[in-house]
Each structure stands twice: as C-alpha cells, then as structure tokens.
Amino acid sequence: MKAKVTVTLRDGILDTQGKAVEHALHSLGFTGVKNVRIGKHIELDIDGADAATAKQQIDDICKKLLSNPVMENFRVTVTDGK
C-alpha cells in the first residue's frame, strides 16, 4: 500500500512561512490570494492487506510521530499503489 500524508499547522496558528509566501504573491500582483498555509508532504509504503487497515496504521503513525497534535493537523490518503 502507498500512503500520502499532509501535515499542516492547525487553523488559527500563525503560519509564518505561509505569510511570507502570501506577501510575495501579493508583490507579484496576485492580490486575490489569501490564507496561504504551508505544510509537509510525506509519502510511504506500508505492508498490509487492505486500505482500511493501512489507513488505521498510518493514522496511528501520524498521531505518534508524523504530526504533533498540539499544533498540527494531518490528512491521509491510501492507495494500492497501482
């Protein structure tokens, strides 16, 4: 199974990198851009019979290590990799 994980700062927490990029975009003339949030993208392969079991394991992995629930949210998508 292949999994893709996205980790971002929780809503309401100042994302300083996102703000910097937002300001740069405004300087470039893209004045309609708002709420830029920057996160981490993590890909991994995982042994497992089905997507549901794999998803459960990845959720656990995200809570324990890949994200810090105090400040971050995560999203997971699992595919069979084909």
Partner: peptide, 17 residues
C-alpha cells in the same frame, strides 16, 4: 520535553522566521 509531553504546548518557528 514538549514533544514527549512532560511539558504542555509546543515551540513553533519564530514569528520573524
């Protein structure tokens, strides 16, 4: 200490980056 939950909260990137 915050990562291992011996202390609450977290340390984020400085506001100035």
């Amino acid at each position: 200490l915050t990562e291992c939950h011996l202390l609450p909260g977290a340390l984020l990137m400085n506001e100035s980056r």
